[in-house]
Design a protein around this nucleic acid. Sequence first.
DNA 1: TAAAATGCATGT
DNA 2: CATGCATTTTAC
Length: 674
Amino acid sequence: MRAISDAEPGLAAEPDRPPPAVSLPVARVAVDVALAHLDRLFDYAVPESMDAAATSGARVRVRFAGRLVDGFVIERTAESAHGGRLAPLARVVSPEPALSPEVAGLARAVADRYAGTLADVLRLAVPPRHARVEAAAATEPPPPPAPPSPAEWSGYLSGRAFLGALAAGGRPRAVWTALPGPGWPAELAAAVQATLSAGRGAVLVVPDARDVDRLDAALSAALGTGRHVALTADLGPAERYRRWLAIRRGAVRAVVGTRAAAFAPVVPLGLVAIWDDGDDLHAEPRAPYPHARDVLVLRAHREGAAALIAGLAQTAEGAGLLAAGWARPLAPAATALRARAPRVSPAGDEIERARDPAATSARLPSLAWTAARESLAAGAPVLVQVPRRGYQPSLSCARCRLPARCAYCAGPLGRASGAMDTVPACRWCGRPAAGWTCAGCGGTALRATVVGARRTAEELGRAFPGTPVRTSARDSVLATVAAEPALVVATPGAEPVADGGYGSVLLLDGWALLTRPDLRAGEEAVRRWLAAAALARPAADGGRVVVMADGGLRPVQALLRWRPGWHAERELAERIALGFPPAVRMAAVTGSRAAVAEVLSSSALPASAQVLGPVPVAAAAGRSSAAPLERALVRVCREDGAALASALHAALAVRTARKAADSVRVQLDPLDLM
DNA sequence: TAAAATGCATGT
DNA sequence: CATGCATTTTAC
């Protein structure tokens, strides 16, 4: 090609660079690149033709290191701090301001909290665009405020005050332990209604799709249709984006959903709530692994919203928010609790009587057997909670059921792949435990502590001939059962709600839960027991709960006395004593031996940092062929949490800049720490 | 996956 | 030690 530009420099100057927009010609763009050293905004020139479309929050495509990548315009500015020449935006995908300033700020805060990148968090926070939906959905005016809600929550100390503060546009924050029974969805719906009546919106996050359905129904009953949406992963891209867009455009102000809904762009935000915050489904499995409770707490702070950390149980993290004065307790009044709670009895002491021929095939203690028989005779269904399959079978003393521990380091014993003929070994230090004897009773025989749901169902069917047996487990979950005699065998989290409540609830998984090699085992047991026990009728209507565990144990006490707050306080005290989250902030650094060592040594860790390990860890499924993994833990005091995250992020940035081959995973306060 | 920077061999 | 070509690095 001839050198036209040389001949006529003034006319053909910079053919690739269209004239910039007159006003605010610079777009600061968050590019969708998940490399730690590129975790910042990049400036692009806004061509005049894109001036109107390239609004803050708009999706764009830009040329970045040669390739075209997606991004969001974060802001428009008059000038750039970048020294070199700016490339122009390649394309404005859509002028829809998908990313609100609030969500952009929240995503940055979540990335900082978890030593992650903004791009990773934005992928969790903003659903993929669906062009047809975006074009079709008309912009509707925001709905009128909901009518004031009738006073509910009379069963809770300060319940009316909390609802009143919501209705007045205030920002009360509470850790709420709900009354047993089927009432909690309606009670949460009342909180949403109070929030809407003040002209603000609400975000409710629940663990799974079944709870979304329940809350969806309760919200429809309280608000009518059109004032709220439900967001779940299984909606499909079009419907998901349609509902999300209705929120973003302000047509809907209340949303219930699973963990991704914590980022739903509700404006103005008046209330965030998380139900059952101890459920591990609230922990996002994709980098940077944020927990929905943390996201909501951060959000309530940033946007001046009220907060409810809710559940039948209470977590140590919830107790921590109370201890810090961030939230206040919202607990059942004693009279309301007495009126609603079932009668709970332990049957741990008579485990051996399960060998009694009458009940032997089902391994039921006679107390449980009697309770079940009486409920069935009275025409009521009976819920039997059994351990979920897939637990690592851990070992305990066959005689006294004390967890089997390593003689050297007190770690939990287990057997490779559950085979009963191999010598058991310690899961922590790996030493074989040949010649094991029980520290409690001197017994020498071990037993695996888990029995699956199907086998239990078969055995129960034989123990109660003529009674229908129904199972509800992971792959086939029942939502409800009728008010008629039946044995309902369910794994934790899959318990159907019974019309009118269960006559009896039998908790058979006590030993399996409490003997798990997990410092969270007690908290988890209480959570699962309360969830099942809450489905029983009140004691006055004959509701009974029998738990197969020793009544002297603290988690069992919490159930017997129905005091989840008390248990969470003790749990928190223990975490403080042991130096575990939420008393401290912990980071897990996982990768090859060399990579972990490098990240640790190159990080400017805060002064309070204490490094534990590294120790070898089992490789995750799917990468078994790769180099063996090690994991180190870094523990700092809570005040140094932000400094810890930023130091680790900086160390990761050095590695990604160098294109280091083996990846390192950093997780803050992971659930599987313990 | 495009430009810029760097590396390297070659010829003077 | 310029020059041309290949390879590596940057990232607006």
